[in-house]
Each structure stands twice: as structure tokens, then as C-alpha cells.
């Protein structure tokens, strides 16, 4: 009962945060980079609901615009991870045999690598562009997806409807895309929901270290990093971005966990 309540609360909260952030250019009360040096850092007030930073920039506007970027990176990087993971896992699982063994060995090997360090290196070496950022993050997060999809595809390959499809003369590609993969959609959706928060976390981690989103653009991770610098004098600059990030991650994780529970209960042995 409480689980259901918490889930719907999380869903509504997440929908609100997402909508407000995506509509930031129209909703934000001020220009996020408009400075007002005479004003300086002000605590929250009626004019500036969440206060201003030391350049007199409105924190609410910066938070909305930053959230927009955080979410867009979250979605794009998850899409990269989804694409890579599903195609890799589906190919390995469907082809089977030696190809499967080899492809999964690659995944196992990559699991053992210090991937975060490669992302750090990539960002340092090739400049800190947004496209690179989400490709690098997506390239880290696809491994688990590949494992899950492979396990599903392998299980489904044995089922009767695949045999039937083969009997009516469909090609392998048609069987995989039209018949096998749609039947894996449950676990794929669940794991995608759980990938978004970890992607957003990685982006915030990189931005916090100064390797992610660069000024004048800003994301929640970058705002937190700026807030930390002046947290003793102006704690609100840390607290509000931190609350925004944590709340969003909390909602996404709650939803993902709930979806997984439902899936596991509805189809016995269905989830990976």
C-alpha cells in the first residue's frame, strides 16, 4: 500500500521536475547567466525565490536551465547505452556459439577495466564537448544492458513462436527484431529506468570534478561544485542544487525498483 503511494508520488514529482526543467527557457524568471554584481549573493527572497550567487545570478533560473541540461545528457547517454547494449546483447544471444562466447568475454573484460578513469582521460584529452560527454558516459553504461538482453534473447530463442517464425521462412533479422526483441521489452524498460539515474550521477560526478559541462553552460553537478566553493558563506547555493539532484535520483530509483518488482511478480523467471 505504502509502496503504491510512494511510487505514484515519485512519478508525479518526477514528471513535474522534468516538465519544469525542460520548459526552463520559458519558465525561468531571469536569464540564467545575467550578472548583477551590485546585488551579489543574496539569500532566498520574494524576488529571487532561491537566492542569487556571488555574481548576482538568479539561482532558480540557473537550476532550471542546469536541470534541463542534466536531463538531456541523462536521456541522450542512456539512449547511447541502450543502443549499444541491446544490439550487442541481442547479437551475442541470438547468434550463440563461439561468437556469443567471444562477445561476452569482451563484456567481462570491459567490466574489469577502470572505466571511470577512461572517461576522465577522454574528457581531458579531447576537450570537454557535450557530444563527447554523453558518448563517453553511454559507452560506460551499456555493459549490464548487454548482459540482461543476451540472457533474455537466449531464453526466448528456444521458444515455440521463434520456431514457428522460422518455419514460415522469416530471416534471422526479422525474427530478432519483430519477434524476439519486443518480448524482451519488459527487462529492457526496467533497466533503462535504472540506467538514467546512474548516467545522471556520472555526469554530475564529472561536472563536479570540472570535467563535464563547462561554463557558461551549467548542470546540476556543476552548480553543486560551485556551491561547495562558497558553502560556508552562502549555503543555499549548495543546498538547492543538491536537493534537486537527490530528489530526481530518488524518484527515478524508486520507479525503477517498483517496475522491477512488478515485472518479477508478473512473469515468474522473466526478469534477468
Amino acid at each position: 500500500m505504502t509502496g503504491k503511494l510512494a511510487t505514484s508520488a515519485a512519478l508525479w514529482l518526477l514528471a513535474t521536475i522534468t516538465a519544469v526543467c525542460l520548459l526552463a527557457p520559458w519558465l525561468a524568471p531571469y536569464d540564467p547567466s545575467a550578472q548583477n554584481l551590485l546585488l551579489g549573493a543574496q539569500p532566498p527572497s520574494l524576488q529571487h525565490w532561491l537566492g542569487t550567487d556571488s555574481f548576482g545570478r538568479d539561482l532558480l533560473s540557473r537550476l532550471l536551465h542546469g536541470g534541463r541540461l542534466s536531463m538531456l545528457i541523462g536521456l541522450c547517454a542512456t539512449a547511447v547505452a541502450l543502443l549499444l547494449g541491446v544490439s550487442w546483447g541481442a547479437t551475442a544471444g541470438f547468434v550463440g556459439g563461439r561468437t556469443d562466447a567471444l562477445m561476452m568475454r569482451v563484456v567481462d573484460a570491459l567490466y574489469a577495466l577502470p572505466f571511470v578513469m577512461f572517461v576522465v582521460l577522454l574528457m581531458v584529452v579531447f576537450g570537454r564537448s557535450l557530444a563527447l560527454l554523453f558518448i563517453a558516459i553511454g559507452a560506460v553504461e551499456w555493459l549490464t544492458m548487454a548482459r540482461i538482453v543476451r540472457a533474455q534473447v537466449r531464453a526466448l530463442k528456444q521458444s515455440e513462436f521463434v520456431e514457428a517464425a522460422r518455419c514460415i521462412g522469416l530471416s534471422n533479422r526479422q525474427i530478432l527484431w519483430r519477434h524476439v526483441l519486443p518480448n524482451c521489452s519488459g527487462p529492457i524498460i526496467v533497466y533503462t529506468t535504472l540506467t538514467i539515474p546512474s548516467v545522471m550521477l556520472l555526469e554530475a560526478f564529472l561536472s563536479f570534478l570540472g570535467l563535464g559541462v563547462q561554463p557558461p553552460q551549467s548542470s546540476w553537478g556543476a552548480l553543486i561544485s560551485q556551491g561547495v566553493e562558497t558553502m560556508e558563506e552562502y549555503p543555499w547555493l549548495l543546498l538547492y542544487p543538491a536537493a534537486a539532484l537527490t530528489t530526481t535520483l530518488l524518484c527515478l530509483n524508486l520507479l525503477g525498483d517498483q517496475l522491477r518488482d512488478w515485472l518479477e511478480n508478473s512473469s515468474p523467471g522473466g526478469a534477468a
Binding site: P197, L201, A204, F205, F208, G221, I224, S225, G227, V228, M231, L238, A242, L245, T246, L249, L250, N253
Partner: peptide, 12 residues
């Protein structure tokens, strides 16, 4: 909560 509070938020 612990999973959603990354070190760079919790630490500060």
C-alpha cells in the same frame, strides 16, 4: 537515500 546521495553531495 544512500544510493541517491553521491559522495560529492554528502561530503560537503
Amino acid at each position: 537515500l544512500g544510493i541517491c546521495l553521491p559522495a560529492f553531495v554528502l561530503g560537503p
